[in-house]
């Protein structure tokens, strides 16, 4: 039986006909909470994967009707184009402040921010830390690719030591630019944080781990426990000057030495925290 014969009527987030057939089922499709719009990201950029995971989560928790997403400035500045939920475009770095107000004015809303490393860990660090310290009931999806992608590949607060960028052409030097900032390490001391985890987007297995972490970070908000944040170690194939596949391997081989993945804080299911020990906070700044 051909796909064409099977495609009849089942709703999907894209405008192609879906399939319904007695003996065929669709096991994976674009989430209904995503729009059909073609994403503007470069080939192989993991933003698209993380967008899909966000869409899946909104679908899975049935949150679309009362979700307000807050988008950043950076590569994902158009994220609101790709989700079906209400959305606010914040100024650079201020998404946690915007989200704070949206949530505080009506706690029945599900409020998430989607931010990059320049947005969250550089210009918006104050808003990030204070939202976390206050234990705002918001969920932050933090995409860390260690570079300013949209503006042309400048050094980010999370660029690795030795990493060549357009503003560190000989490689990042700790003596003059400091060490990369580990956001999870930094926030893990704050009691307002209910869930904090870092995951590399480098393989199907890790993407599935990301899903598990995202569920917890969302539950941190829905169960009124505090702020939830998932840091995605993400690729920037174009600005890293690597193929998409090499960029994913670079995460596994190199990036995780500076940014060890794992669950840093879990006050959602405290039992899990013991079964998933917090990774060493040793901030090695390993060679790129």
């Amino acid at each position: 039986m051909s796909i064409e014969m099977a495609m009849m009527g089942k709703a999907s987030a894209d405008d192609r006909p879906a399939t319904t057939c007695d003996d065929v089922e669709c096991v994976m499709a674009r989430p209904a909470s995503m729009t059909d719009k073609l994403m503007h990201y470069c080939p192989g950029c993991t933003h698209g994967i993380i967008h899909r995971l966000v869409g899946e989560m909104i679908d899975e928790f049935g949150l679309l009707d009362h979700t307000v997403g807050v988008c950043p400035v950076g590569c994902s500045v158009f994220a609101y184009e790709y989700f079906q939920c209400d959305a606010i475009e914040a100024s650079h770095g201020r998404a946690p402040a915007v989200a704070t107000a949206v949530k505080r004015t009506d706690s029945s809303r599900f409020v998430f921010t989607y931010q990059g490393d320049g947005d969250l860990a550089s210009i918006g660090m104050a808003e990030t830390i204070h939202a976390a310290a206050r234990g705002e009931r918001i969920t932050i999806f933090f995409v860390n690719n260690g570079i300013y992608g949209m503006t042309g590949g400048q050094m980010a607060p999370t660029s690795l030591i030795g990493q060549k960028t357009t503003t560190s052409p000989s490689g990042r030097i700790a003596e003059t630019t400091g060490m990369p900032i580990g956001v999870c390490e930094l926030l893990s001391s704050l009691k307002g944080v209910a869930y904090l985890a870092r995951v590399p987007i480098s393989s199907p297995k890790n993407i599935n781990t990301a899903r598990k972490y995202m569920r917890k970070a969302i539950r941190a908000q829905l169960e009124n426990k505090g702020l939830g944040l998932v840091e995605f170690l993400s690729t920037c194939p174009v600005q890293w000057a690597m193929s998409p596949i090499a960029a994913m391997k670079h995460i596994d081989n190199t990036v995780i030495k500076t940014f060890p993945p794992g669950v840093f804080v879990d006050r959602v299911d405290p039992v899990d925290a013991t079964s998933t020990p917090m990774p060493a906070v040793a901030h090695t700044g390993a060679e790129a």
Partner: peptide
Amino acid sequence: TSCSLCAEVCPEAGIRVFRKKKGK
């Protein structure tokens, strides 16, 4: 095998995966 790993890593959310229903 409809394992969906391709769709899982697709940055465009552009792959749909189908399989035969179990028990048929």
